[in-house]
Simulated scan of single mutants.
Amino acid sequence: MEDLLRPIYQERASQSNTQGILMIEKKNPVSPNTDKFDVILFMVVKELDESLYVKHYELLQKKAALYIASEQQLEEWITLGTNRRVIDWIINGKVLFDRNEFIYALRGKLLDFPLEDRKLKIGLEFAKLIRRYLEGKDFFDSKHYIDAYNHIVHSLHHLARLAVIDHGFHPEITVWNQVKKIEPEIYKLYEELIQGDEPIDKRLELLFLANEFMIYSRTRTGAKHLIEVLMEKEEAWSYNEMLHHPKLQKYSVDLSVLVEYLVEKGFLEVEKKQTKGNGVFHRLYQVVPEK
Rank of each mutant, 00 (worst) to 15 (best):
L189E: 14
E192V: 04
W176F: 04
Q178S: 05
S217P: 04
R203Y: 03
N177G: 11
E205P: 09
P199N: 11
K180F: 02
V179T: 12
F208E: 00
I182H: 13
E185T: 07
L204Y: 02
L207C: 05
K188P: 03
E185R: 06
E198W: 05
W176Q: 06
S217G: 02
K188F: 09
E191I: 14
K180N: 07
P199E: 14
K180R: 13
P199M: 07
Y190M: 13
I194H: 08
F213D: 15
F208K: 06
L207R: 10
L189P: 01
D201E: 15
K181D: 11
Y190N: 08
K181S: 12
M214N: 08
S217Y: 07
D201G: 07
K181E: 15
K181G: 11
L206A: 09
P199S: 05
K202H: 12
F213N: 14
Y190D: 10
K202R: 13
E185K: 10
V179F: 00
Y187N: 00
G196D: 01
L204S: 00
K188A: 09
Q195G: 05
D197T: 09
G196S: 05
G196E: 01
K188R: 15
Q195W: 02
I186Q: 02
I186L: 14
D197P: 13
Q178T: 03
E191S: 11
E192L: 12
L189I: 14
L204A: 00
I200H: 09
N177D: 15
L193S: 13
P199T: 05
L204P: 00
W176L: 03
Y187M: 03
L189A: 07
L206S: 08
I215Q: 00
I186M: 12
K202M: 13
K188T: 08
Y187D: 01
K181I: 09
E212L: 07
E205R: 13
E205S: 12
R203M: 05
K181C: 07
L207K: 08
M214P: 04
E212N: 13
M214R: 15
K202D: 13
L193P: 06
Y190K: 06
K180V: 01
M214S: 12
Y216K: 15
D197E: 15
E192N: 14
E198P: 12
L209M: 09
K202Y: 12
F208I: 01
E185D: 09
L204C: 01
R203I: 02
L193N: 08
Y190W: 10
L209Y: 06
I215A: 01
E183K: 15
E198A: 10
G196V: 09
L204E: 00
L189V: 02
E198D: 15
E183M: 06
P199V: 05
D201W: 04
I186W: 01
R203Q: 11
Y187T: 00
I182G: 04
S217V: 07
D201T: 08
E185Y: 03
K202S: 15
L209N: 08
G196N: 12
R203W: 03
K202V: 10
E198T: 09
K188I: 08
